[in-house]
């Protein structure tokens, strides 16, 4: 399955890309996807799928758009 990952703000420069499509085996979880990108695990973040937050053990589906962002606080 393919999943598109969009990085936000400083994560773009840490991960080395702004937007990228990943070919993943069926059953890959959000946590599994996060292991594939170069982001510090301990760093607070919000991961959303199609506009809703996901937990690390949530299973991804073909065509998902996953967004990884620092915890912005609205300026």
């Amino acid at each position: 399955m393919t999943v598109t990952v969009k990085m936000i703000g400083p994560f773009i420069y840490a991960a080395g890309f702004s937007e990228k499509t990943f070919d993943l085996p069926a059953g890959t979880t959000a946590g599994g996807l996060m292991d594939l990108v170069n982001l510090e695990k301990s760093r607070p973040k919000i991961v959303t799928r199609n506009g809703r937050a996901v937990a690390p053990d949530d299973t991804l589906e073909d065509g998902d758009r996953v967004v990884m962002s620092p915890l912005y606080s609205g300026g």
Partner: peptide, 20 residues
């Protein structure tokens, strides 16, 4: 270390667009 001021507050625009 965090890279926050690379985009400063403006980073949130892309996020707001993603989460509607």
């Amino acid at each position: 270390k965090s890279g926050w001021s690379i985009q400063s507050t403006t980073g949130v625009l892309a996020w707001c667009n993603e989460v509607a």
